[in-house]
Computed example of a mutant assay.
Amino acid sequence: MATDDEYNITAEEAFRFLHDVLQMECTETWIKANKVFFLGEFIRGMHYHIPFQTISGIAIPDGKRRLPTAADIKTDIFSKLGGICYQINLFCWMLLRALGFDTRLLTSDVFGQKDYHIGVIINGLTDNGSKHLLEVGSSYPSRRLIPLDFEHCSPEYSDSYMKYRFVRQGEGTVIFQHKINTVSSLARKHPGYIEGEWFSFIFYNTERSVSVSHFNTAMTSIMTVVNEDDFALTSLRCTAYPNGRLVCIKDSKLMLEDEGQEVQYSHFRSRDEFLEAFQRHFPQFTESMIRAAMKNIQFKLP
């Protein structure tokens, strides 16, 4: 199994990614002088260009899937394919370490499933004891850098159609909560995590940093074993936020956020429409990959 030493990129690779992929004009001096601002721009760039998606994993035939290596992750992110939290958040951790940030990996649980999600925290950003959460590897991400200096509850954040906050639970756990009406379909599937108008989504263990290898068992299962209760290998999903607005293909649905921050839904009427939506919104995916994913999942329209 992989060790942390394998999960490194050079500063030169990090700047090439920022310039060529995220189209950010920044230098080492600029980053050091404006760390918080840089991270905000980095988060926006990741949401714009790097999709949270299950297509590439589903396109691999059963029996041939494996946990991505560090080289796989770099290839997928540099080519704008993205992935799930394992690829996206691990890459952020790698890149920010290369730029000199004190960045750690966190264990995170989702709906009672331990180590289901990889979290990223940045230490000492604004002072010696500060902690900030960076979350871009989720289908419902936070759209900004989150300071964890609140006592019980963070401010309520509003980014495009999403409204969310963070709440402490005991010592060491911070819960990522969304307003129910912004994640209504997900909340209906997990009613036990509804608290009034809020829905508890991810539970971060903020006091326990871990190595990459900590996730080997859980992530290998998620990314190689078909589980009908888990979307990773059973649902065709691709989500990004170009210009700060949601663009999402989710099985038979296309979701587009309009100028009024309302999400408009439409349904594909044919397989050709499904393929055309990818060509229009996510052209980095080849038709052969999309067709392979459709075949492996036995994709059908309603």
Rank of each mutant, 00 (worst) to 15 (best):
S200G: 13
S200C: 12
S200I: 02
S200L: 03
F201Y: 14
F201C: 10
F201R: 01
F203C: 03
Y204W: 00
N205E: 13
N205A: 09
T206N: 04
T206R: 00
E207G: 15
R208T: 14
S209E: 09
S209I: 06
V210Q: 05
V210I: 08
V212A: 00
V212K: 01
S213D: 15
S213K: 01
H214A: 14
F215H: 00
F215P: 04
F215Y: 04
T217M: 08
T217A: 12
T217I: 11
A218M: 11
A218S: 15
A218L: 07
A218V: 14
S221I: 08
I222F: 07
I222G: 05
M223D: 01
M223K: 02
T224H: 01
V225H: 10
V226W: 00
V226S: 03
V226D: 04
V226R: 13
N227W: 05
E228L: 15
D229I: 10
D229F: 10
D230W: 01
D230R: 03
D230K: 01
D230Q: 08
D230S: 05
D230P: 00
F231A: 15
F231D: 03
A232E: 02
A232P: 00
A232N: 10
A232D: 02
L233Y: 01
T234A: 10
T234E: 02
T234G: 08
T234S: 11
S235H: 14
L236G: 00
C238W: 02
C238L: 12
T239F: 09
T239C: 15
A240V: 06
A240F: 01
A240H: 09
Y241D: 04
P242D: 01
P242Y: 05
L246F: 01
L246C: 11
L246Q: 05
V247L: 08
C248M: 09
C248E: 04
I249E: 02
K250D: 12
K250V: 13
D251Q: 14
S252M: 06
S252V: 11
S252R: 06
K253G: 02
K253T: 07
K253E: 12
K253R: 10
K253I: 07
L254A: 11
M255F: 11
L256M: 08
E257H: 05
E257A: 08
E257I: 13
E259R: 03
G260T: 12
Q261F: 13
Q261E: 08
E262L: 14
E262H: 12
Q264D: 09
Q264P: 05
Q264N: 11
Q264T: 12
Y265H: 11
F268Y: 08
F268M: 07
F268N: 02
F268R: 01
F268W: 03
F268T: 05
R269D: 11
R269Y: 00
S270Y: 09
R271F: 06
R271V: 15
R271E: 11
D272I: 14
D272N: 12
E273C: 11
E273P: 10
E273W: 07
E273V: 13
E273S: 08
F274D: 03
L275M: 13
L275I: 15
L275H: 04
L275T: 05
E276F: 08
E276L: 13
